[in-house]
Design a protein around this nucleic acid. Structure first.
Lengths: 237, 237
DNA sequence: TTGAGGAAATGGTCAAACCAATTGACAAGC
DNA sequence: GCTTGTCAATTGGTTTGACCATTTCCTCAA
């Protein structure tokens, strides 16, 4: 019984793997144009169809983009946050991840993000954060408030200067703007949020990670209690 | 100047989008066989080459797998953790994310994972966790200790019952087993780790999220100080 | 009953065209 | 000189038809 046969690598897979490696290693720098299809055909001895399938895989993986016409071709890309976002998006949809789980995930990230922001923020971060916070306190419209709130959080996440957490947070954060949870921002709730966020901001400005973490965590827990008191747990995306 | 032209959707893109939607919505349940290439050709009026490119895209996105031979074909898949892992893998490689950032990310997740584990763990989780902890305390080999340690953490992450965090943690955790950081597990370090982990485990068993969070966070910070005292910050993956 | 061999179904590959989009070059007209 | 229009060149997109490779099913003979 052949329990383990060596999987035969297809021609297009070989080429895709080869080009992928060259792009990820930087041998083909981002922005460079790959050889055109017909050249790849003669270089690798594959048919044009196989070459195109290889390139199509790379495109689906976010490693190249395609331009039509003369001076077109495939442009090498460094994989960015879009890939992470797309894969999480499909994971959430495919696995039927419930909305509360998504919320729980973001809540799990935010205290650490606040701590890292306090540790790593630079002057630009502080300026952006202050601008977001100031804007937030002037907004009265509930829907606009939620958007501005999300923006403040996003800015804080970026201040962490942790590329992985930023990619994850940017992937998940926007999903929390679901219209079904947009009704919570009554005037007093908004005031409480502004206050809590201001306290976190102070800790980030002061460069006190543990204070920022603690304040953000309390804010998050308070927010959760609020949402749970209003929304049924069964809401699904 | 045409600043915004309506991007023309290619034939294979249309088909890929259509099939992707059917799979994600569950109209084509996981495990089902898609129509074969020649049938898709006649159903959608595309050439076989275009159909194959569409299917190749879905394969790259983890939505179908391909089997050769009679009774072969494309099997629909629900996107799982592999996709998330692959995209994070490419992100880390392509963006040249430094090892300390990776470590920082995992450290950011673990306290919340511990808290969620304490909140959501079931009897199976407790049994697995206890087994991992017990095994850990009996290991003397440094390399094996690190592997068992990773396994305990992974088990704890699964006890959180948060599918997104599990997917992320499973994607990043294994990368911390880099051989370059495998030399830290001296006997007294191992004893300290076993003790810290035991305390977290107690809190998870007791169902006390905030205690578990606090203890895990202290452990993580202690571990970080240890690593920083030994490893240069410039180590890169 | 079992084994061998061939038929059938399915994806993998190749080849040669031609279509579609974009850009460059160049000439005509202002 | 500058603009504008036309045509040619380049590159990806698509089609068609054929054949190969792998796997499974089916039949028939030992």
């Amino acid at each position: 019984m052949d329990t383990e046969v060596t999987r035969v690598e297809k021609g297009f897979e070989t080429l895709a793997a080869l080009l992928r490696e060259q792009i990820l290693r930087g041998d083909i720098p981002a922005g460079d144009i790959l050889p055109n299809e017909r050249d790849l055909v003669s270089q690798f001895g594959l048919s044009r169809g196989s070459v195109r399938e290889a390139l199509r895989v790379l495109e689906a993986q976010g490693l190249v983009s395609t331009r039509l016409g003369r001076n077109g071709g495939r442009v090498a890309l460094q994989p960015g946050t879009e890939m992470v976002r797309d894969s999480l998006e499909m994971f959430i949809r495919g696995q039927r991840v419930a909305f509360p789980v998504l919320m729980e995930t973001v809540e799990a990230l935010e205290p650490s993000l606040a701590a890292l922001a306090a540790e790593h923020r630079d002057d630009d971060d502080l300026a952006s954060l202050h601008a977001c916070g100031a804007r937030l306190s002037r907004i009265s419209n509930a829907k606009a408030f939620l958007a501005a709130n999300a923006r403040w959080h996003r800015t804080m996440a970026h201040a962490s200067h942790n590329a992985i957490l930023i990619a994850i947070y940017d992937s998940l954060g926007p999903r929390l703007l679901d219209p079904r949870v947009a009704g919570f921002a009554s005037a007093d709730v908004r005031a409480a949020v502004v206050h809590a966020i201001g306290r976190v901001e102070e800790a980030i400005i002061a460069g006190e990670p543990e204070t920022a973490r603690r304040r953000m965590q309390r804010h998050v827990q308070a927010y959760r209690r609020l949402v749970e008191s209003v929304a049924p747990k069964t809401v699904r995306l």
